[in-house]
Simulated assay, not measured.
Amino acid sequence: MNKGTWDIIHAQYITSAVRADQYPTPPLIEAAFIGRSNVGKSSLINSLCRRNGLARVSSTPGKTQTINFYGLQAKRTTEGQEERADFYLVDLPGYGFAKTAKTNKDKWSGFISKYLSGSDNLGLVCQLIDIRHKPLDSDIESYHWLLDCGLQVQVILTKADKLSKNAAMAQKALFKRELGLDDSRIMTYSVTQNTMRSELIGRIMTALEGHY
């Protein structure tokens, strides 16, 4: 049976947290987004949800300083039967904060680590990396740390529209080699191309389906 294509039909801000007792209730399956500061995370979230301004876009790196939870609902129709799924999209502070005190870095990395290593509801982590740059040590270290936590990771190379098609393909091949990825665990993304949005929603829902 051919199943329909998932789409995000509703998205809203729920709450922000820095401690486990501030996480939203009731608990839902979660897909978390993380990446270096200024990687285009807020723009991608707004594109994914088709809600301009849902996640605040800033030109100042390190602007997101809390764990932000958004409530999303996805829908697909298969042979006339409608199916819906609710989950949290979790926007995590960027790693590699450019303009923050070391004490803040330590504090933030502490509560981010506690969330990533301690959440029972985390079904997928989307790690965003700027496609225009070579793999940085912080990206590689973060990827392997997420795997060591037993998490499923989807690497998303952002800002693909900033490169030619051939250059984007070459960069994707470079990241596949550096991180040891196959095509199912890495993809490019451009907020200007709707086909990439559909692909990402499909990958997220495939990862989360086993947790419902």
Rank of each mutant, 00 (worst) to 15 (best):
S58E: 12
K41R: 10
Q22F: 04
Y95F: 13
T206G: 14
E178Q: 14
Q81G: 03
F69W: 02
T158V: 05
I9L: 00
D21F: 12
L157M: 10
K162N: 08
T78G: 13
H133S: 07
G210S: 11
I8R: 04
L181D: 14
G53L: 09
S164H: 05
Y88F: 15
V155T: 10
E83K: 05
A173M: 10
R177S: 14
G180H: 09
A17W: 04
T60A: 11
K172F: 10
V39I: 08
G4C: 09
V57I: 12
N104R: 04
I131H: 12
K107Q: 01
L48N: 00
T66Y: 07
A98K: 13
I186Q: 08
A55K: 01
S113T: 11
Y23I: 01
R132W: 06
E199V: 06
D137Q: 14
K165G: 04
E199G: 02
D182N: 14
Y212F: 10
V155C: 02
G80W: 03
A207R: 14
G71K: 01
E199L: 13
L151Y: 03
K75T: 12
I67T: 12
G62A: 01
C49I: 00
L92D: 01
H10P: 05
A85V: 12
G96A: 04
V125S: 14
M1C: 14
L179E: 14
L44Y: 08
I9G: 00
E209L: 02
P93K: 02
K41S: 00
S142C: 12
K165I: 14
I129P: 00
A173K: 13
K159A: 12
L208T: 04
F69A: 05
T192V: 02
T195E: 13
T15G: 09
D183F: 11
P135G: 02
L208S: 03
Q152N: 15
D106E: 13
E141V: 15
V90I: 11
N2H: 10
L28R: 03
I201K: 00
T25W: 09
L122M: 02
A170R: 10
F33D: 03
Y115M: 09
P61F: 09
M187N: 11
M196R: 12
H10W: 11
T66E: 11
E199A: 15
E178C: 03
I8Q: 01
T188F: 10
F175S: 04
L179F: 10
R36Y: 07
Y212S: 04
G150N: 07
A167C: 08
V90E: 01
T25N: 06
D137Y: 07
L28W: 13
V57W: 02
T25D: 01
C49H: 11
I186R: 07
L151D: 09
D106C: 02
S184K: 15
S198E: 13
M187S: 05
T100R: 15
D106R: 11
R185C: 09
T77M: 11
T103E: 12
Y143G: 02
R19N: 06
R50V: 10
L92Q: 01
A170F: 00
I67K: 03
I112F: 01
L200C: 12
S119E: 05
W145A: 15
T192G: 06
C49Q: 04
S142F: 10
S138W: 00
R51Y: 00
A55F: 06
